[in-house]
Design a protein around this nucleic acid. Sequence first.
DNA 1: CCCCGGCCTCAAGAACGCGTAAAAGCCGGA
DNA 2: TCCGGCTTTTACGCGTTCTTGAGGCCGGGG
Lengths: 225, 225
Amino acid sequence: MTSVLVVDDEPQIVRALRINLSARGYDVMTAYDGRSALGVAVEGKPDVVVLDLGLPDIDGVEVIAGLRGWSSIPIIVLSARTDSRAKVEALDAGADDYVTKPFGMDELLARLRAAVRRGLAREVGDPVVETSSFVVDLAVKKVRRDGHEVHLTPTEWGLVEILARNPGRLVSQKQLLQEVWGPMHVNESQYLRVYFAQLRRKLEDDPAHPRHLITEPGMGYRFEV
Amino acid sequence: MTSVLVVDDEPQIVRALRINLSARGYDVMTAYDGRSALGVAVEGKPDVVVLDLGLPDIDGVEVIAGLRGWSSIPIIVLSARTDSRAKVEALDAGADDYVTKPFGMDELLARLRAAVRRGLAREVGDPVVETSSFVVDLAVKKVRRDGHEVHLTPTEWGLVEILARNPGRLVSQKQLLQEVWGPMHVNESQYLRVYFAQLRRKLEDDPAHPRHLITEPGMGYRFEV
DNA sequence: CCCCGGCCTCAAGAACGCGTAAAAGCCGGA
DNA sequence: TCCGGCTTTTACGCGTTCTTGAGGCCGGGG
């Protein structure tokens, strides 16, 4: 579960955030001043921090610096100050986003999702599309089949890449021909038949009855995961 | 140098951003519609994208999706729409930040710095890449082989460095040529054959059957660890 | 029933890309 | 100026990949 640390000295704001965040499945921690916020952050290791700048004890920028000293947790700053100077200071101190009060809850939640997504993106590896019989790794441009690498020619890879980027969606013949062979060959649908036959021989368990590289007659092809 | 792709159909905004960003040492690319933006992004690999949502051809959300299909480049959305629905849509599509027009240049620049900072944090890795037959030290720009240093010419090092920074990944011929020889020589693939032969003679145990500097015919080269 | 459009399969020549070697050109330092 | 190192260019053999044509299969419509 994603955990959020909410830091604000106004109890009604903390309450509103706690209700909204909890309802959406977040694990909510709270703090009412900067010093305890730093303590809670160290203890609880939240996935993201929502930080009000107007705290009673320490300046908000100090809190950001304190967090950034040991962590790269995403920080979303909440503040009543709308002047650009305050925003620039907070962002340059290490904040990830700056939302002015009063704020729309929808927007704050969307920015929070964006921040969390980025935080997670750092941890995950390559974009990989997986089927029951083979694995397409789009970043390193490799295809593996039961642990063993399958060699694809440039044209073959071009087709697989387009399909793998649109899993489950129907891709038209014209689009495939255009992107792999260029605009001059959008009618050479025979190319597709030849190459899909090759791909099925290389990738499908039973090339005569493909389960992942599907022909939609008269329309195009579909990559079924 | 940090490179920024600015996408907007209003020339005066593009001009204003270009002037401000260039003055602060950014390398600025521009596009005036969604389709060319995607093309420029693929070609130029910018470090961050500033994207206007009101483009003439494609919907801005489509552009975001198109970028997110293959990349996690930070995207800062610019838009005249202030309603939270638009913000939520853009952020959930994969944008990193949302700034409403008219915007303060100071604030935009600060948000841009924040986005770039996050992007860079993701890239720092081990400055030493090790294979079974040699070791590449990216920090001091040296290659060692059984304890003994191997001398590389500047061009050879350029190739090794790019490959070592993308271990396991397939790097296209175009990218190698562009980064080592410059944009005017992206078709001189013979250079690559000559230099990879040299590198294999210097680094591989059996230059005729390379295990680490792998050619992917028609596509590019791969550094296998 | 037969025809026809779209699909699959196979095969062979052409075209392409790669590795290698070696020569030629281009510096900067002795 | 000459020399040595580095880069660019040229040439050729070889294996792989692409293209193209021919034939067979299947299902729907006339």
